[in-house]
Every structure is written in structure tokens, then in C-alpha cells.
């Protein structure tokens, strides 16, 4: 299970610019190249695309997806995966809509807290019970959906007074969508936190080779629980952003965001095998995924192809970024 060559490009490779080997720097640049070529192609197909209102709309649409995917990126970097994010975001939207009348502004904080706790619980189950993370989070997905359906009575919960969460859906100076600012701040805070503390190297080491990380004395178990906790918190925040723009919470509201979120992570170039990747990449990935969706409708392709596209995109991106030196036996 050793990967002597690929361990070298540690935390530095996480930033978009230059990895040491040519193929790695290529995969690092690929998401940005994809983004740029998509923008050029769309601008050519539809002249008004580069105008400010249309750019604002794209960035705004990408924001909840980016927040959702940013948290899950950390779980992927540790070598796991979180399939429960979309269901947890839906549950959060329901909780927020139910709690807003009584808690007001605190409701958002409470919801993010509950989502973080739910994420941490899954992380703990993964670590202490030794269950693969995708099965824990698949179970979590089912559980959260069911809780959301029960407490909402399987119907959307309307929000009458959206004052306390208006910050999630306004335009700053009439131009910049606040949701996009939230997304950038979330990514920036997490990225700085990871960069400025040993956490970054711990996460990379755990992702590249968990046994080695354990032997090196890295607190792998708390680290993984923390990763799933952050993933949950981000899902909660994404739920808040969704409520702010739809004025309601729905038990299946965010469920369709699971595939786009995973696509954003892997298209950004984060390897599903762990270790290699980064948060800023996911931000780029979220923009690429959103632009692709917009692009499809601009070109006039039926929305049905969207799902096919996500499926193909995920498999292709995973195949490209996979660290093959690490997988002897593919399960």
C-alpha cells in the first residue's frame, strides 16, 4: 500500500498552481482550463453571457453547491466520502424553517450546530465502529431524509418572515450575491485554517497513507471525526442558503445536489483516493458544474441530459485524478 513517489507533493500541491510532476501540474491546471474554456465557449454561443447580470446569476447559483461541496472535500481529502450531505442540507432547511419563528437570527446558528453534530456522529460511527464511510453516510442519508419527512409532514415548510436569513440572499452593492461571498468566506476560512496549522499536513498524510499517518503519531481518529463534522456543518449552511432563496424548507429540497456536489469535488481535481486536492479546487469545480448546467440550456439541450452528464463527468473525473499507485485491488 506504499506510494513512495506520490507522497512527496504534499500540502503544496493542494493549491491550484504547480505540482512537482508534469502530470500532477496538468491535473492541477485542468479545472481552471475547463472553467476558462467553458466561459469562452458560452460567451461565443450567447453574446450576452459575459454581461454583469448573467455572471451574477451564475455565481449566485453556484454558491450553495460550493458551500455543500467544500465541506465534503475535507472528508474526501482524508480518504473517506460523505454521501449524506444533500440529505443533511434538506433536513437543515426543514429545521431552519421550523425554528425561524421562535429562534429568529439564532436559528441559523442552531441549524448549523445540529448539522455539525450529525456529521460528527457519522464520523464517530465511521471511526469507532470501523464501518466504511460511504456506508455510514449512505445510512445517514436515509436516516436524515426520513427525519426531514417526518418532522415536516412530507410537505414544504413555508417561511413567512425571512428577515433573520435575508443575509443569505441579497446583492451587495446590487452586484455581488451575498451567497457567493458566504461561499468564498467559508472556503477561505477552511483553507487558511488548514494551511496555517498542522491540520493540512495531517489531512494530506491521512489521505495518502493512513497507516503511515498513524505510525507518525497523527491523531487520525479525531481528525476524521472533525472532517465529517465540518462536512455536516457546511451541509447545514448550504441548507440555510437554500431557505434564504426559496423562502421555504423542503424535506427533499437539496437531494438533487448530491451528484453535482460530488462532481464539483472530483472535477476540481481532488482525488477520490484521498490526499491530493484542495478546497479552492472545489470552488472552481462548483463553477464548472454550474456553467455546464447553464451551458446545456443555452445550447438548447434537454434538461434530461443533465443527469447523464453528471454521471459521465463523475466517472471521467475520478478516473483522471485517481492515484493508481495506491489501489492494488479495486473494489
Amino acid at each position: 500500500m506504499s506510494a513512495p513517489v506520490t507522497i512527496r507533493p504534499s500540502a503544496d500541491a493542494a493549491v491550484v498552481k504547480g505540482g512537482p510532476t508534469r502530470s500532477e501540474s496538468l491535473t492541477s491546471l485542468m479545472p481552471v482550463l475547463a472553467l476558462v474554456s467553458l466561459v469562452i465557449a458560452l460567451a461565443a454561443a450567447k453574446p450576452g453571457f459575459l454581461s454583469q447580470p448573467s455572471m451574477t446569476a451564475v455565481v449566485d447559483a453556484a454558491a450553495p453547491l460550493a458551500v455543500l461541496a467544500a465541506g465534503a472535500t475535507i472528508a474526501v481529502l482524508c480518504g473517506g466520502i460523505d454521501l449524506s450531505i444533500a440529505a443533511l442540507a434538506s433536513l437543515s432547511s426543514v429545521l431552519l424553517a421550523l425554528w425561524l419563528p421562535t429562534l429568529g437570527g439564532l436559528a441559523s446558528v442552531a441549524v448549523v450546530g445540529v448539522a455539525a453534530a450529525a456529521g460528527a456522529l457519522q464520523g464517530a460511527a465511521h471511526v469507532f465502529l470501523r464501518i466504511p464511510s460511504f456506508i455510514v453516510t449512505l445510512g445517514g442519508m436515509s436516516l436524515f431524509s426520513s427525519i426531514a419527512l417526518v418532522i415536516s409532514g412530507a410537505a414544504p415548510v413555508p417561511v413567512t418572515d425571512d428577515g433573520p436569513i435575508r443575509w443569505g440572499f441579497t446583492r451587495i452593492f446590487d452586484v455581488v450575491p451575498s451567497a457567493a461571498v458566504v461561499a468564498v468566506v467559508v472556503v477561505a476560512v477552511l483553507a487558511v485554517l488548514i494551511k496555517a496549522t498542522p491540520l493540512g499536513s495531517w489531512i494530506t498524510a491521512t489521505g495518502y497513507s493512513e497507516p503511515a499517518a498513524r505510525l507518525a503519531g497523527i491523531p487520525v481518529d479525531p481528525l476524521k471525526i472533525g472532517a465529517f463534522c465540518v462536512s455536516g456543518a457546511c451541509a447545514g449552511l448550504a441548507g440555510v442558503l437554500l431557505v434564504a432563496r426559496t423562502f421555504s424548507g423542503g424535506p427533499t429540497m437539496a437531494d438533487s445536489l448530491l451528484l453535482p456536489a460530488i462532481a464539483a469535488i472530483v472535477v476540481g481535481g481532488t482525488a477520490i483516493t484521498g490526499g491530493h486536492g484542495g478546497l479552492w479546487r472545489t470552488l472552481v469545480g462548483a463553477l464548472v458544474v454550474t456553467l455546464l448546467r447553464v451551458g446545456l440550456s443555452v445550447v438548447g439541450v434537454s434538461a434530461a441530459y443533465e443527469s447523464i452528464l453528471y454521471g459521465a463527468l463523475i466517472v471521467a473525473a475520478v478516473a483522471l485524478t485517481l492515484d493508481r499507485s495506491k489501489v492494488m485491488v479495486v473494489k
Binding site: 460511504f134 463523475i314 466517472v315 475520478v318 478516473a319 485517481l322 493508481r324 489501489v327 479495486v330 473494489k331
Partner: peptide, 12 residues
Amino acid sequence: LKVPSFMTTLGV
């Protein structure tokens, strides 16, 4: 492609 099965089947 040696892509883990949970990813390929999710895509499919």
C-alpha cells in the same frame, strides 16, 4: 479504469 465501484455505479 480502476475506478472504485461506488463511484462508477453512482455515475451509472
